[in-house]
């Protein structure tokens, strides 16, 4: 599904990721944890193709395709979905219009007919209900004036409608209260399927109580410094990220002193 090999990424000339290796098979849920500034969001945005996130070395293979040569919209149409940490407000563009354009772009790419307004609305309304979102949300401008929780749930709504092959959730849990978190987690769990892979990026273990990952990776200073099962997340929750530090001095010789 996704094969990341020795990925180096620089932002504005500053190296952030120093050789990430990651392999996700269909059906798997991987969690990437790490302290602030460790490069988690950089990884997510580089995979989605954000301009300014320059891959300086390495390769990413997504379902047999060279992801790094593809435009962001091509990646999306092939089934890569990024739930944004900070969903962008787009004043003047109705949420419903946005969702429909997005879905039809993917469907046309898949060789499927575009959905008409009726079928589309039926599909969206069912998902809205499951996510506890009001229908009026469809007719408001994309994310404009949405509460933090509404924005995150709107990301999940998009994800469920687009039904991606690979979903990357960038700190979707941050800023959510426990009820919203459960709703979001239920949405993600509904998407779990042998054909799909999910990459959860999170600072806290909390989300992993509701979405049980198959693998947990710890990212620090642009490198994966630990990989393990769900128990690794629990250890981080109990002990914080501090215990990694001592190890890091040995694992990454030559690393510049952290501030």
């Amino acid at each position: 599904m996704l094969y990341i090999k020795n990925l180096h990424v620089a932002v504005e000339g500053k190296p952030i990721l120093h050789g990430i290796d990651l392999y996700l098979r269909g059906g798997e849920v991987h969690a990437i944890m790490g302290p602030n500034g460790s490069g988690k969001s950089t990884l997510a945005l580089a995979l989605a193709g954000r301009e300014g996130y320059d891959v300086t070395e390495g390769s990413v293979n997504f379902m047999g395709l060279n992801l790094l040569t593809m435009a962001p919209e091509q990646r999306a149409r092939e089934g890569l979905f990024l739930a944004f940490q900070y969903p962008v407000e787009v004043p003047g563009v109705a949420n419903v219009q946005f969702l429909k354009s997005a879905l039809n772009a993917r469907r046309v790419h898949q060789g499927l007919p575009e959905l008409d307004a009726m079928d589309f609305l039926a599909l969206v309304k069912e998902q809205l209900l499951q996510l506890g979102l009001d229908e009026s949300l469809l007719y408001r401008s994309v994310n404009e004036g949405f509460s933090g929780g509404e924005k995150k749930r709107n990301e999940i709504l998009q994800m469920l409608i687009l039904a991606p092959a690979l979903a990357i959730l960038d700190e979707t849990d941050s800023g959510l209260d426990i009820d919203a978190l459960k709703i979001v987690a239920a949405g993600v769990n509904r998407l779990r399927d042998p054909q799909r892979a999910i990459l959860l990026i999170t600072h806290y273990q909390r989300l992993l109580d509701y979405i049980r990952p198959d693998h947990v990776h710890v990212l620090d200073h642009g490198r994966i410094v630990r990989s393990g099962g769900p128990e690794l997340a629990q250890k981080l929750e109990a002990q914080g990220y501090g215990w990694l530090d001592d190890d890091l001095q040995q694992t990454i010789p030559g690393e510049e002193t952290r501030p």
């Binding site: 193709g49 954000r50 919209e73 962008v88 787009v90 946005f98 772009a105 687009l162």
Partner: peptide, 27 residues
């Protein structure tokens, strides 16, 4: 950021630009 957000959902660049320009103007 808006352009990237729309493209990350599968809208091509021309379509995303047109949508944003029209949304700006229609206010």
């Amino acid at each position: 950021a808006q352009l990237f957000y729309l493209r990350a959902r599968g809208l091509d660049q021309a379509e995303a630009r047109a949508l944003l320009v029209e949304a700006f103007a229609a206010e």
